[in-house]
Simulated assay, not measured.
Amino acid sequence: MWKAQVFLKAVDTGSLSKAARYFGYTPSGVSHMMDAFEGEIGFPLLVRSKQGVSPTPNAVRLIPLIRDACGKDEQLTQVISEVKGLATGTLRIASYASVASEWLPEVIAAFHKDYPRIKIHLFEGVWQEVANYLANRQADIGFYSYFPTIPYRWVFLRKDPMMVAIPPNHPLAAQSSVSLDQLADETLIFPAYGADVDVLRLIEGSGVKVEYSISTLYNYPAFRMVEQGLGLVITNRLITQGLSTKMALLPVEPASSIDLGIAIPAESENTPAVERFVTYAQRIIPQLP
């Protein structure tokens, strides 16, 4: 499955050179490998240009099957290694950036101490990005917030309260909490380009009409805008941890929270590395500040 794994990396990065660096090959070596892979398949898989590579229409049909085959091969490798008494393999984790920075370092540190032979790849993103990593089989498990349509086994970890980030000199900053109806006439900054799942669920459930004036992809640039007095941000508390900021952070009234946890696709079930990492996360994360 090695050629297939290199092919997937080339598709994911859009570059044969990046795939070569990732696996420690030369670009020409990867190019010859892809030529051989296409020869084995029987038709072209990659469109090559000065801008990089992209999958052909026929390759697009094969990619989900190739990802599944590579996942099964990795699962088989891990089980064989476990039987031999060797904990080896690769674990691919998709996660909210806040979870990746505030919670996962301690989990990974403990896990890596016990299983140093297991390689870990961490992908960060907003809700939709984590969901796409899982749907495309680029990640084995995902750390993000619960949503009823998630089609995977869900492992709850912790609740996280919703907050409002407010410029320090704003009149609302003197309050102990902020209600959503108080935000109706305020300038709001929305992460995820206005499609933040957690924020939208909070607003839709309140019946209050709240609209954004500025949007960003990630929360951290939005917080910097709050510090400059450009607007307010509705967020969850974990995202604000570890920030050196001048913002006022007030809870939403009435109190509201999101459920953070782990989504485990059926294809990842019974994979030794996944099972072990989930166990470590369940033990460590609920005890963190």
Rank of each mutant, 00 (worst) to 15 (best):
Q182K: 11
A10K: 05
I63A: 15
L104W: 14
W127S: 09
V126D: 09
V233D: 01
P272Y: 10
E40N: 08
E204P: 13
R61N: 07
D68A: 08
D198C: 14
Q75W: 08
W103I: 02
F156W: 12
V60R: 15
N132V: 09
A69N: 08
P171C: 00
Y22E: 11
L243H: 02
A59V: 06
V130S: 12
W127G: 00
K84D: 07
E211A: 08
L180S: 00
S54F: 10
A87C: 14
A174I: 10
P27T: 08
G89K: 06
P251E: 01
V178W: 13
I150R: 14
W103R: 00
V47H: 01
P116F: 00
L91K: 06
V6H: 01
R158T: 11
Y96E: 02
V274S: 02
E102N: 14
P265R: 01
Q78D: 06
V60D: 01
R92T: 13
L157Q: 02
A195D: 03
K119L: 13
T271S: 13
L202D: 14
V278Q: 12
V197D: 07
Y25K: 13
P251L: 11
L238H: 09
L183V: 05
V199P: 07
S145N: 04
P64R: 00
A97K: 04
V11L: 12
V278F: 07
K18L: 08
I80S: 13
Q282Y: 05
A273I: 05
H112D: 12
I262T: 01
D196Y: 03
H112P: 02
A59M: 11
D185H: 05
Q51L: 15
L260P: 02
I264E: 03
R117Y: 14
N270H: 11
G29Y: 10
V53H: 05
M34F: 09
A19L: 06
D35R: 14
G42E: 00
A87P: 11
K119W: 10
G261S: 06
P272C: 14
F111T: 15
Q175Y: 07
N270P: 00
N236I: 09
V53L: 15
P161H: 03
E38I: 13
